Structures are given as C-alpha cells and as structure tokens.
Simulated scan of single mutants.
Amino acid sequence: MPDQLFTDMYRDTEHLTWAPTEQVRERGRRRTRRTRVAAVLAGAVAVAVVATGAVALAGGPDAAPTPVLPATGSPTPTPAPSATPTPTPSPPPPTGTNPAGPPSSPSTADGRSTTGSTSPAIPTAALLRASDLPSGYRADGSDMDGDWSFDFAAMYVCADTPTPTAEQRAERGAVFRKPVESTVVERVRRYSADGAKATMDWVRRTVNECEPDGQQSSLSILDSGFVGDGSLLIRFNAQGVVSYTLFVRQGDLVAEVWLDTLTDQADVRQVARRVADRLCLGTDAC
C-alpha cells in the first residue's frame, strides 16, 4: 500500500504547471544580482556615515562631543610626551685611525710592517712576487695544498722524524708556476722570536737525524747561513725524484719555499736574497 504522504503530495501537485528550466535560471540570476546591488549600497551607506562622523569630529567648537563609553576596567593613562634629547656630537676619531672601519696595521711608505711580533698578521709585502723569480714564472694564487712541504717529504724519505715544538701565530702563502717545467710554493709563518729559531733548529735536526727509508732516498743540507738571520737549502731525493726546499728566517718570520726543479745555484741564491728582503717588510727585526 503506498505511503499516505506520497499519495497526498501527488494529489496536490498533479495539476501544477512548472515553469521552463531557462525561466527558473533567469529568476535565480536576477535574485543574485539584487543581492549584490544591495550589498554594495549598504557598504556605500556605511562609508558615508563614517565620513560624516569624521567631519563632525574635525569641526569647530560646535561639533558634537564624542560620547564616552562606560568604563569596563582601569583607565589606561595617556603617556606624557617625552622630550627629544639633543644629540651629543661624537668626538673626532683619534689621529691615525680609520673612521670607516678598524684601524689598519701600521706600515711605512713602502708597505713595511711596523708592528713586529705585536701583530700576527703577515702583510702581502712580506711574500715573494713573480718578478723575484727567474723569467717564465707567473703568480697562481695562494692555494698551498699538496704534498710539497718539508714535513711531508721528510716523513716520506726518513724512517722517523722529530716533532716540531714551536707554535705558529700566523701563516700566509703564494704559488708560482712555470708552465710544464716547475712550480714554486712559498709559505711564510710567524712565530715568537724564540719559536722561529726553534723551527730552524728543528729543520736542521730532522735532516741530520734522518735515516732514509730506502736505498734511493736521501735528505741533505746543501748550504746554510747565506742570507737573513738564518737560512737552509735542503735537497730531497725520494726514490730518484729530486727537489729543493729553501728556509729563510728574519726575526719572528720563517719562510719555507719549495723550489721544485729550480736547482741552478745562481738562481737559488738570488731567490733566497729576495725572500730575505721581502720578509723584512713583515717584521721589525731587520
């Protein structure tokens, strides 16, 4: 038996005439437009009311006072205007300082450092230039990575090596290359004055105590004491591969220069003199 609710609905709507679908859609669109227009008009009225209130507040003495709302808590006090402090002029920078940044290391007109061991920084003037080397060498940055150092070579050639005891305070280096033929690497380190002397003694002791680890390997001092406060020219022979390293000390600075295949004695001595001269631009000891 059919449900009574559906029977009644069918009877009441049996003879109704339904509007076409397009007409129903058009009515919906009109209703939507009316709703949007009403919303816009309401917003415009609200803006006008606010503007009118602002004009009234900005008016003369006859303007209506702003109503005071009942207090709901402790009133917030209005802070008193603070006096603008009169700026105090900054004192002029001390003579010899750089107002745009930290003071630079004192130096002479030729770029020589006048700080000696009081400042560990090593000026670039204390390093070799390409012009200090035989013709054909060109500067190639400051990347000193590699197995060229005296310490590494000594450990490769000798069965055992003494441990250096001096603690360095700063380090700086430069690399020079002669295409295909040779590479020169310089590393300048700053120690205390006693530490620099101890480093030269360590180099000499390492060579003298070296017991070659192989019949074709050797480590020897070719020359010493020819420039600066101390100097050593070391010859390495590692399984038949020969290279030269130069040590020069000036005060608290020690330069280690790997000469690679630069072996001509006249060239080596010229480079050693230039190393000593350059180091004097980084220490007061000269």
Results as ranks from 00 to 15, higher is better:
residue 44 A to F: 11
residue 150 F to T: 02
residue 274 R to G: 00
residue 231 S to P: 00
residue 23 Q to H: 15
residue 128 L to Y: 00
residue 185 V to C: 03
residue 42 A to L: 14
residue 280 C to L: 08
residue 202 W to N: 13
residue 247 F to Y: 09
residue 263 T to D: 07
residue 63 A to L: 15
residue 142 S to G: 09
residue 245 T to K: 05
residue 243 S to V: 10
residue 233 L to Y: 03
residue 91 P to H: 10
residue 73 G to F: 10
residue 208 N to Q: 15
residue 138 R to E: 07
residue 179 P to N: 10
residue 239 Q to C: 05
residue 211 E to Q: 15
residue 267 D to A: 12
residue 283 T to K: 03
residue 179 P to L: 12
residue 231 S to T: 06
residue 220 S to K: 15
residue 227 V to D: 00
residue 82 S to N: 12
residue 241 V to I: 10
residue 280 C to Q: 08
residue 174 A to L: 00
residue 211 E to S: 15
residue 89 P to K: 14
residue 252 D to H: 11
residue 25 R to M: 13
residue 223 D to K: 10
residue 104 S to K: 13
residue 254 V to H: 02
residue 123 P to H: 01
residue 41 L to A: 10
residue 73 G to D: 07
residue 44 A to S: 11
residue 49 V to S: 07
residue 15 H to N: 09
residue 244 Y to C: 07
residue 28 G to L: 15
residue 230 G to E: 01
residue 166 A to C: 01
residue 39 A to E: 12
residue 208 N to C: 11
residue 256 E to P: 03
residue 2 P to S: 05
residue 102 P to C: 06
residue 176 F to C: 03
residue 267 D to C: 07
residue 184 V to D: 01
residue 254 V to C: 02
residue 169 R to H: 02
residue 106 P to Q: 02
residue 101 G to P: 07
residue 26 E to G: 11
residue 154 A to T: 06
residue 47 V to H: 04
residue 269 R to C: 02
residue 145 D to P: 02
residue 158 C to P: 02
residue 11 R to A: 11
residue 280 C to G: 14
residue 257 V to G: 02
residue 224 S to F: 10
residue 21 T to Q: 09
residue 86 T to Q: 13
residue 6 F to V: 13
residue 61 P to D: 11
residue 180 V to A: 15
residue 194 D to I: 06
residue 71 A to R: 13
residue 249 R to P: 01
residue 90 S to Y: 09
residue 274 R to V: 06
residue 286 C to T: 10
residue 99 P to S: 05
residue 271 V to A: 00
residue 152 F to E: 07
residue 94 P to Q: 07
residue 190 R to M: 00
residue 161 T to F: 01
residue 69 L to Q: 13
residue 199 T to C: 11
residue 60 G to S: 14
residue 115 T to Q: 09
residue 80 A to E: 04
residue 141 G to C: 15
residue 233 L to I: 08
residue 178 K to N: 05
residue 102 P to F: 07
residue 69 L to N: 10
residue 261 T to V: 14
residue 237 N to T: 14
residue 61 P to R: 13
residue 225 G to C: 09
residue 271 V to W: 01
residue 108 T to V: 11
residue 1 M to P: 08
residue 88 T to Y: 04
residue 222 L to F: 09
residue 226 F to H: 12
residue 234 I to P: 02
residue 137 Y to T: 01
residue 27 R to S: 14
residue 134 P to T: 04
residue 211 E to G: 14
residue 234 I to V: 15
residue 161 T to E: 05
residue 177 R to W: 04
residue 261 T to Y: 04
residue 212 P to R: 02
